[in-house]
Design a protein around this nucleic acid. Structure first.
Lengths: 224, 224
DNA sequence: GACCAACCGGGGTGAGCCTCCCCGTTTCCG
DNA sequence: CGGAAACGGGGAGGCTCACCCCGGTTGGTC
């Protein structure tokens, strides 16, 4: 179910003045490493051995260290990748689907494939949450999802007491893989739960929610 | 069903013929270890260092090894503890609350405190899923939750296309803590999500669910 | 209240894993 | 086709964790 497009994410052409360009195979390997990292981290946690990531990417571990100074830098780029791909999803769904709530449903179910559940472990560690790239990716993602939700809200199909943060965190939690992943057909479960959750999002609201709606900015805040 | 008996966690008085009785402080420490293990495992994962568990329990690590031969045995008892406490909750809520769906809501929100999110990592590792004690605890839990759901279903407030497994897995996922737990007031979020999910559970169903309803037995099955 | 034994706590050790580097070889680009 | 950037695999160093041992302490019994 490769989402096709996906690409967008501006080519990694820049990278500072020091390296005028990156060799073709180097670029290819870099992409494969990030993809492998996303998969393995979402499966085994953010502290998965580098050798395992390298093995799955089909490269040597040295290549990994050549591209990323340390684990945090890799996590940083994985996070960017997930956010970017998810934003792509939101934008393309909004463009393709006429019915607003159906678009929201499609987006939520599509997020499973993007391994959005990986965001949660990633964001929690020691990454620099104030990095400009991260903030930019976040703003783009928030804008795209807010557009989806706004349309659904305007059409009267989405309850009005929730915000982007509520949706994203819930999706993240519901799609997180089980550590051992030994349960048969767990994906089927995930889509059931998402569907139930979406039913809860529909207007009219069936109950009053505790707390208050949260943006992605609210999520960035740390404990004192 | 009727498994209800359970007698709440029967005192650990037995334990084979070799040890006629356990000294009072030993019993106390054992309980504290299990409680600490539940907390730390739900927070850091099932592979949390034994020293950390011992530290939080306020005992030496040797005490831990004295009570549990290995990690798997500890996990086994933690799982039993979580199941038992959760079943207690379900039973007491059912007895106290007259409105069926309100009872279900109370149970779900109460499950957060029981760290039911710990079940998920625990069950997935290498524990013996066919152990008699585990099956008994599971049956008791399933009966208690099924009673809750059955009442809500009979009153026409709960959609009919879901089963105990659906609810338990969803609660488990939604209440799992973030690895770093560095986000402010995450508990508030959890209760929001649970509330939204519960709204999706209400009758009449707002959409058709993929897959089919699952029991706890279905969850026990492993991949080929 | 005193004895005996069960129980406890903390420090130490050995093993396993992971990170990171080094160097001969391969691949790309002009 | 030549130079250089990039690659892959193997290995050393470091770190953390599981597990054990022994002097001290606490609880139960007469």
């Amino acid at each position: 179910m490769a989402v096709g497009v996906g690409a967008t994410s501006a080519k990694t052409a820049k990278c500072g003045a020091s390296s005028p360009r990156l060799r073709a195979d180097a670029v290819r390997n870099r992409e494969r490493i990030i993809a492998a990292a996303r998969e393995t981290m979402v499966e085994f946690g953010a502290d998965v051995p580098f050798d395992e990531i390298a093995r799955r990417a089909g490269v040597g571990n040295a290549t990994l260290y050549r591209h990323f100074a340390d684990r945090l830098e890799l996590i940083h780029h994985v996070t960017l990748s997930v956010m970017s791909r998810t934003a792509d999803q939101a934008e393309s769904v909004l463009a393709e689907e006429s019915d607003a709530f159906r678009a929201l449903r499609r987006f939520v179910h599509a997020a499973v494939e993007e391994k959005i559940g990986a965001l949660c472990p990633l964001l929690s560690d020691g990454v620099d949450r104030d990095h400009p790239d991260l903030l930019a990716a976040r703003d783009r993602l928030e804008a795209a999802v807010e557009a989806l939700m706004g349309a659904a809200r305007d059409s009267g199909q989405l309850r009005t007491d929730i915000a982007v943060g509520d949706l994203m965190v819930a999706i993240t939690q519901l799609t997180r893989p089980l550590p051992g992943s030994s349960c048969v057909d767990f994906d089927k479960f995930v889509h059931r739960h998402l569907q139930l959750f979406l039913d809860g999002l529909q207007a009219p609201a069936r109950s009053e929610l505790p707390g208050c709606a949260a943006t992605l900015e609210d999520l960035r805040r740390r404990k004192p």
